[in-house]
């Protein structure tokens, strides 16, 4: 086996810098999105912010972490971890939002029971 087999992907320096500046730009964008009074997206806001974060994360993963040029399996490992995380989050969110009413009814009921002191 010769050194020819050991060829590794070497990231180019301009690409690394370009990625960094893109990440900083996206950070500034998300801060502006999150604090500006002019831009109000309501319920969409959290998804836009998460989308920007995901773009940033993908940049880091693909370029800084070399996933774009790496063995497919390593990417599969990361993605499958994220998929299971998604299932975990999704089911917990779905379930908890379904029984939220029972929790709130209880809190209200108990506060009413203690109500007379106005506490």
């Amino acid at each position: 086996m010769s050194h020819a087999d050991h060829k590794h992907h070497v990231a180019s320096l301009p690409l690394l810098w370009a990625t960094f500046f893109a990440l900083v730009a996206l950070t500034v964008l998300t801060v502006v999105m999150g604090t500006s009074d002019q831009i109000q997206l309501g319920w969409l806001d959290v998804w836009v912010v998460l989308f920007i974060a995901t773009v940033k994360a993908s940049l880091v993963a693909l370029i800084f972490m070399h996933l774009a040029a790496d063995k497919l399996f390593n990417g599969v490992v990361l993605v499958s971890a994220l998929v299971f995380m998604g299932i975990f989050l999704g089911m917990c969110l779905m379930d908890s939002s379904n029984y939220l009413a029972e929790q709130q009814a209880y809190v209200e009921g108990q506060q009413a029971l203690l109500g007379p002191t106005g506490s």
Binding site: Y99, E102, Q103, A105, Y106, V107, G109
Partner: peptide
Amino acid sequence: VKQDVVPGRYSK
């Protein structure tokens, strides 16, 4: 019939 009784909420 069986249902857990969880503190902090009503179970039915």
